[in-house]
Nucleic acid binder design. Structure first.
Lengths: 130, 130
DNA sequence: TACATGTTTAGCTATATGACTAAATATAAT
DNA sequence: ATTATATTTAGTCATATAGCTAAACATGTA
């Protein structure tokens, strides 16, 4: 298949761009933190992460039960990450709200995030529109 | 809506990347030449061109009955066109065959291409209308 | 061992996308 | 004006994609 095309397909989704923006701000984030950021089901966020990983842009590092994701250092096709970072982080409608959400998420332990996600699997406080 | 995302969506399709590659090799190409290159229905290629144009990467110039497409000079979000050109034109499975096809197409007049396309609307072999 | 927990995979559904044909539009030629 | 022609839009269909829940997997803990 076509690796070059995979890069654009990986970036052609709003939630995956949000993941990229998050990983461009923090060296490493675990799956549950990114799930919390996106506000989607864990399975959904996992699929997005798999697609980004498959494109060669991000990598996952397993540490016990957690998987920490980060940008790949040696990017495929010399992908211009600096440009992406510059534009992504200054594009309001994608990451502005996420910056605050991320800051909050980083103050919590992954354990607490995961615990809350488990608890919220069914009916949280109605904040589940989509 | 999100313009930045539109760029990646525009590039997340093999046929649209083929169009980009073609326009990175030739200053201007008319719709029928690009249709001929892709080997799809004229309507299909027209929709791809519209999407690329809507993303801000290419532009169309009307000249009589023909519409000539070309890259936009002032690209949105400082899109790194040099990088795209470099990688796209050296990625075999996308453009290698197209380079020869394009060279052939350029030896013909748009009129002939359009005439053949009309004739080939139904079944390409043997259907010699007029 | 058994259980708990973080993540992924499987299976499903709704929407988005890309392909086609036919009709509509815009412009040139007669 | 009428016809021809290049392109776009409308309408349809099949496939791809993104979301969900539930089950499976992998690993830590009792």
């Amino acid at each position: 298949m076509n690796d070059f095309l995979l890069i654009f397909k990986a970036l052609a989704d709003r939630n995956r761009l949000r993941i990229m923006a998050a990983l461009l701000q923090y060296d490493e984030l675990c799956a549950c933190q990114l799930t919390e950021l996106l506000g989607v089901a864990g399975a959904t966020s996992s699929r997005h992460l798999a697609q980004l990983q498959n494109s060669g842009l991000i990598q996952g590092r397993k540490k016990g039960r957690w998987v920490f994701y980060s940008m790949v250092e040696e990017l495929p096709y010399d992908f211009p990450l600096t440009w992406l970072q510059d534009k992504l982080l200054s594009t309001k409608d994608i990451v502005e709200d996420d910056k605050k959400r991320l800051a909050t998420i980083m103050t919590e332990s992954p354990e607490n995030i995961c615990r809350r996600q488990r608890g919220e699997e069914f009916g949280d406080a109605g904040e589940f529109k989509k």
